[in-house]
Structure formats: structure tokens, C-alpha cells
């Protein structure tokens, strides 16, 4: 799965990854995981969880070496929040390349 993957397919995969990842975390989410989900505020991600998320994405889409710093950093600084939508946008830009 890589080039030609649609936004819908990317979103579907990310939701699956996040649901699987958080299955044991004993969280009560107000809304199901979707594009608007915030990794830090809603899923209580810490930096180590972001690392695991990236590895899971690379494994799922069978692509390594994507410039994830574009997602995690802005103007040379780490961002405080990442949404599922940000991640879909990032993958939509890079999976086709």
C-alpha cells in the first residue's frame, strides 16, 4: 500500500492503527477516533507514543524514511498537538511520492 492510496483509505488505516494502539489504555473517549481526534489532548499521547505511532504507520504503509519531522515540527520547533487530519494530510502528500 503506497502510491495511489486515497485520503479515505489513509484515514481508515490510521483509525485502525489508533484503535488497535489504544485498545488497552482504559480510555473513555467522547467520540470515536476520526479526523478531528487530537493525539495529545484526546488520546493522551506522550512522546514515546508518537514514536510508536510513526513506526506503526511505516509498517502499515510499508514506507520508511518519510520526513515525519514535517508533521512533528513547525519552523524548527516541535508542535504541541497533532490531529489525525494533520497526519492524513502529511501521508497524502508523501505516500504518492
Amino acid at each position: 500500500m503506497a502510491a495511489g492510496t486515497t485520503r479515505e483509505k489513509i484515514l481508515e488505516n490510521l483509525v485502525q492503527i489508533l484503535e488497535d494502539m489504544t485498545a488497552d489504555w482504559d480510555m473513555e473517549l467522547d467520540d470515536p477516533i476520526g479526523e478531528a481526534t487530537r493525539l495529545m489532548a484526546d488520546l493522551e499521547f506522550e512522546s514515546i507514543d508518537v514514536v510508536q505511532f510513526i513506526v506503526a504507520i511505516e509498517e502499515r504503509f510499508q514506507r520508511r524514511g518519510m520526513p515525519f519531522e514535517e508533521l512533528l515540527m513547525e519552523d524548527g520547533r516541535y508542535v504541541d498537538e497533532i490531529t489525525v487530519r494533520d497526519t492524513v494530510d502529511f501521508l497524502d502528500r508523501h505516500l504518492g511520492q
Binding site: 514514536v51 510513526i54 513506526v55 512533528l72 515540527m73 524548527g76 520547533r77
Partner: peptide, 14 residues
Amino acid sequence: ERGSEVYFTLYNFR
């Protein structure tokens, strides 16, 4: 190095 920060990541099996 990335911009004004250092980009850290954990080594893993790969």
C-alpha cells in the same frame, strides 16, 4: 539537527 531544534527518535529493530 532540524531548524533550531534537534530531532530525536528512538532506535528500533529496523
